[in-house]
């Protein structure tokens, strides 16, 4: 296993003060795994209740923001809550993305409430193998 945390391409946004939402709804930080592969960085975020239609991924000024919207209003309207362990609300989290990532080629998929982002590394940052020729 390579050492983790040393050369992070993606860091958690330093500034916790984010723009407030205009609608009063709860926003949660999704639990996220980040895996570094040889040619890409994989970001996996748990967003139960979110599908491909209501997830927004924006990349602006080197900040990647994922926002999943959960329709809380339509939630089991004719039932009353007997006991609750989790709240219902949106998911939002931002990460900074450096030039090492090819920002044009980011791919996103959602399956079973899990958002998966593939951030391919830019060509120039991929390690190049140099063959040593024998003289």
């Amino acid at each position: 296993m390579a050492e983790t945390g040393k050369d992070l391409e993606i860091r958690k946004e330093r500034n916790p003060l984010q723009a407030e939402t205009t609608r009063s709804r709860r926003v949660f930080i999704p639990r996220t795994d980040i895996i570094e592969k040889a040619d890409s960085i994989i970001l996996i975020a748990d967003m139960p209740g979110v599908d491909e239609q209501n997830v927004d991924i924006t990349l602006e000024k080197g900040v990647l923001t994922m926002h999943g919207t959960v329709n809380a209003e339509a939630y089991h309207r004719d039932y009353r809550v007997a006991y609750a362990e989790y709240g219902i609300g949106d998911f939002r989290r931002s990460f900074t993305v450096t030039d090492e990532i090819d920002q044009e080629k980011i791919e996103a998929t959602v399956k079973d409430g899990v958002l998966r982002l593939i951030l391919p590394k830019a060509e120039k940052t991929k390690p190049k193998k140099i063959t040593v020729q024998t003289g």
Binding site: M1, A2, E3, T4, G5, L8, I10, R31, T32, D33, I34, I35, E36, K37, A38, I41, I44, D46
Partner: peptide, 8 residues
């Protein structure tokens, strides 16, 4: 390959 962050 390595985990940079593992919260799930």
């Amino acid at each position: 390959e390595a985990y940079h962050r593992q919260e799930r």
